[in-house]
C-alpha cells in the first residue's frame, strides 16, 4: 500500500492502494467513478479510455504509480452538464445500443477532435480502431464524430 495524490477531473484526490493497481480500478473501486469501464484489462477494447494530459489512454494498463502529476479526465469530467459537443452529437445520432462501450468511445473521439478538429473518415477509423463496440454501433459513431466536428 502506498498513498498517491492524483489530479482527476480538476480535483486533487488521495488514494491508498497497491502501487501496481491500474487506474481503472482506482477510479472504479476507490473513487466511485464508474463511468470508466472494464472490458478486457489488456488494452485491447478501449472501454476504459480516459484522458491523460489530454491523450486518450487505456486506464486498465496504466498503473497508479506511473501517473504522477498528470491530469486525468474521465467521462464524468468531460463536461459539467453532459454537454460536450461529442456527448451532444452522441445523443442526437442516438448512438448507443447497450451503451457499455460508449464512455470509452466518447473519450477517444473527444481526444481525437481536440488534436484534429476536422478528421477524415480514415482518420476517424484509425483513431477509433482500439475501441470495440460489440453491439456494432460503428456507423453511428462515425456519423456522431463528424457531427461533433462540425459544431
Amino acid at each position: 500500500m502506498a498513498s498517491f495524490t492524483l489530479n482527476i477531473n480538476g480535483k486533487q484526490q488521495e488514494v491508498d492502494v497497491d502501487p501496481s493497481t491500474p487506474m481503472l480500478w482506482v477510479l472504479r473501486d476507490h473513487l466511485n467513478l464508474v463511468g470508466t469501464k472494464y472490458g478486457c484489462g489488456i488494452a485491447q477494447c478501449g472501454a476504459c479510455t480516459i484522458h491523460l494530459d489530454g491523450t486518450a489512454t487505456r486506464a486498465c494498463m496504466l498503473t497508479v504509480s506511473s501517473v504522477g502529476n498528470s491530469e486525468i479526465t474521465t467521462i464524468e469530467g468531460l463536461s459539467e452538464e453532459g454537454d460536450h459537443p461529442v456527448q451532444k452529437a452522441w445523443l442526437e445520432v442516438d448512438v448507443p445500443q447497450c451503451g457499455y462501450c460508449q464512455a470509452g468511445q466518447i473519450m477517444t473521439a473527444s481526444a481525437l477532435l481536440e488534436k484534429n478538429p476536422n478528421p477524415t473518415d480514415e482518420e476517424i477509423e484509425m483513431a477509433m480502431n482500439g475501441n470495440i463496440c460489440r453491439c456494432g454501433t460503428y456507423t453511428r459513431i462515425k456519423k456522431a464524430v463528424k457531427l461533433a466536428a462540425k459544431s
Binding site: I75, L78, L91
Partner: peptide, 28 residues
C-alpha cells in the same frame, strides 16, 4: 423517432450497469 431514455446517463458515465453496483460493506 424517440431517443434512448438512458442516453444522457450513458454518455455521461452514470452507474447503470451491474458492474457499476457498489454498496456499503460490499465485498468483491
Amino acid at each position: 423517432d424517440k431517443r434512448n431514455v438512458d442516453g444522457k446517463d450513458i454518455v455521461t458515465g452514470k452507474p447503470l450497469f451491474g458492474l457499476d453496483v457498489y454498496k456499503e460493506g460490499m465485498l468483491t
